[in-house]
């Protein structure tokens, strides 16, 4: 484990104190978790006192299906995996969708003066209406990154001046990178010659899984 990362961990614990919910080091990368309430204070300190002058990346993540596989491999079964069209969409499980800590906002910070990186995670309190405070005041480039996280995950950012969709189509419905959003989407588009305009219709293709999602703890490569 790199000494510089350990030093950073200690320094962050000193400076931020109780604001750090958890901190761990994996693959020489330090990840800390902050509470949504005082994340802004902590980010300001990270920038001003610890020299993280750049926000490299900000993205959302949806932990709804974390650790779920399509195909059970730990015990023997008398059926194989069908490669045909198979609907994997789990039944509308409202309880799971409202699970706590479903969404997270992940910040990747870079300190140019100290040449070190840091990953910060903030889990919004509500899953229905996931909301965190915007960091635009701290790093200007957060503007588009937050718009993207809003667009793809439906995470709201307080005090964002212009929280519009950014990557998806004008008039798009839904948040495509959420795990309960199907890969095929909900609508397809074509030109209707009779109406003389482009029309949107429900998708006609079915979700298809060619390679099942498999979790094999026993078969991970030698590490």
């Amino acid at each position: 484990m790199k000494q510089s990362v350990l030093d950073l961990q200690n320094k962050i614990n000193d400076v931020l104190g109780g604001r750090v919910v958890s901190s761990n080091i994996a693959l020489d990368e330090l990840t800390i978790e902050l509470k949504p309430d005082d994340a802004i204070d902590a980010f300001t300190m990270l920038r001003d006192d610890l020299g993280f002058e750049q926000l490299i990346d900000l993205c959302g993540i949806d932990y709804l299906d974390f650790g779920q596989a399509n195909w059970e491999t730990m015990k023997a079964a008398n059926t194989g995996f069908s490669r045909g069209v198979f609907d994997f969409a789990v039944e509308e499980d409202e309880e799971a969708k409202n699970q706590e800590r479903r969404f997270a906002v992940v910040y990747h910070l870079l300190s140019i003066q100290n040449n070190i990186r840091l990953r910060v995670k903030v889990f919004p309190e509500s899953t229905q209406l996931p909301t965190v405070d915007s960091v635009i005041q701290i790093w200007s480039c957060a503007n588009w990154f937050e718009r993207e996280a809003f667009d793809l995950f439906g995470i709201l950012f307080n005090n964002h001046p212009d929280l519009r969709r950014i990557l998806t189509d004008y008039g798009f419905v839904g948040h495509p990178l959420r795990k309960d959003f199907p890969l095929t989407g909900h609508v397809e588009m074509r030109y209707d010659a009779e109406k003389g305009r482009v029309v949107y219709e429900p998708v006609s293709i079915e979700n298809r899984v060619n390679v099942p999602r498999v979790i094999r703890e026993d078969a991970s490569p030698k590490v």
Binding site: A26, E29, T31, D57, G67, A219, S220
Partner: peptide, 9 residues
């Protein structure tokens, strides 16, 4: 191949 639970940048 499978990758052990982890995250990396």
């Amino acid at each position: 191949y499978t990758i052990p639970t982890n995250e990396a940048y």
